[in-house]
Amino acid sequence: MEQGHVNLTIDGKEILAKDGQTIVQAARDNGIFVPTLCDFRSLNPAGTCRICTVKVAGRFVPSCTTPVSYGMVVENETAELTDLRRALIEMLFVEGNHMCPSCEKSGNCELQALAHRYRIVVPRFPFLFPVQKVEARLQHLFIEHKRCIQCLRCVRGVKAKDGHDIFGFIRRGSDVRIALDVNDPDAVSEETAKKAMEICPVGALIQKRVGFKVPIGQRKFDRKPEGSPS
């Protein structure tokens, strides 16, 4: 075994990972699809969404925050895990007000893409139809709390030029709400709005006045469904 490398198996397939990688990173490097939602490229993982849950030694663990270890045996694409992930996605759908037909994120939405990959036609849980006001007072940003899945990507990933955080969150549990300081000019700039919309996996952070500029057929998941080999 080479220095700094780890052998493990995912669904019976032996792969090689770098020491210190998480299971998700190792899977990606080896062309194995593990669904994620709150995870985002360069950011430190948060483990808030649990979609990446895998089974190791009989225990459910979030693969985005679990480091690989030598000889680890990981279950990923099992019927049990597929149903678990499906249930999580369904829960996210019923907790919010996800109206795909009129949402401008449709076609670029990672939650929608995952639902499609997991062949969801209807949630098994009742719709909650929450009542929440949109935050519309910012000049360049629309915050649709009803679509927020509390992944905290924006909190972790959108920074001002000097590096300070722009987004924070208030309350806890399923009441978590994204918030920002309206007196901070960096927070309310057009550039921040653009970054926020890019980093948000769903249609919760919307840069104003962009709308439906990208026609149907040219959106991200029109071209390539979720879970396709990159």
Binding site: M99, P101, S102, V121, V122, F127, F129, P130, V131
Partner: peptide
């Protein structure tokens, strides 16, 4: 029929 759709925007 499945989610309530557009008319369900009146819920609440």
């Amino acid at each position: 029929a499945i989610t309530g759709g557009l008319p369900a925007m009146r819920n609440g």
